[in-house]
C-alpha cells in the first residue's frame, strides 16, 4: 500500500488561549492515525506550545492537588504525538519560528522540536500533499 503523503500544519495560537489549539492537536493526531508524516510550523504565540518549563499546579477552585488536577500541558501533547509517530514509524517535524521564540524567551523546548524560520515552512509546504493554516483570530 502506498504511504500517504505528508501534511503540513501552521499553528499560531499560544497555549491556554484558544480551543483552536485543541482542535489542531486533534487534527495532528488524526493525521498520524491515518499514516501521514506531519510537519508543523509553529508561528508567533504557538512557539510556546513546546516550551519545556510549562508546569502543573494544584487548583484550589477545583479542590484538587497538583497530581489530581493533572493539568494539560501542550509540551506533553507534543511529546505524545512524537512518541506516537515513532511507534508508527512516522515522522513529526516540529519547527518553531526562531524570531518568535526569541521575542518570547521560550527557547528551552522539549526534545524533538527544532528551531527554524519561514524558509522551513515553505519547504514543508512544498513537500506536503496539503497545508492547513490554523491562524489566530
Amino acid at each position: 500500500m502506498t504511504k500517504p503523503q505528508p501534511l503540513t500544519f501552521v499553528l499560531m495560537d499560544a497555549p491556554f488561549e484558544s480551543d483552536r489549539t485543541t482542535t489542531a492537536f486533534r487534527l495532528l493526531e488524526a493525521a498520524l492515525e491515518q499514516g501521514h508524516d506531519v510537519n508543523v510550523f509553529a508561528y508567533e504565540g504557538a512557539v510556546a506550545l513546546s516550551f519545556a518549563r510549562q508546569a502543573r499546579h494544584p487548583n484550589a477552585v477545583h479542590g484538587r492537588n497538583e497530581a489530581d488536577e493533572a493539568h494539560p500541558l501542550a509540551r506533553e501533547w507534543i511529546a505524545a504525538l512524537l512518541q506516537k509517530a515513532e511507534t508508527k514509524s512516522l515522522k513529526v517535524d516540529w519547527v518553531n519560528c526562531g524570531l518568535c521564540v526569541d521575542e518570547r524567551g521560550v527557547a528551552e523546548t522539549i526534545s524533538g522540536v527544532r528551531r527554524g524560520g519561514p524558509p522551513d515552512f515553505w519547504a514543508m509546504a512544498e513537500r506536503a500533499a496539503n497545508t492547513l493554516v490554523i491562524a489566530t483570530r
Binding site: 485543541t22 501533547w77 505524545a80 504525538l81 512518541q83 506516537k84
Partner: peptide, 11 residues
C-alpha cells in the same frame, strides 16, 4: 475523552 497518543485527559 480527549487523547493525543498515550496522553489522556483525566479531568
Amino acid at each position: 475523552g480527549l487523547q493525543f497518543g498515550a496522553w489522556k485527559q483525566a479531568q
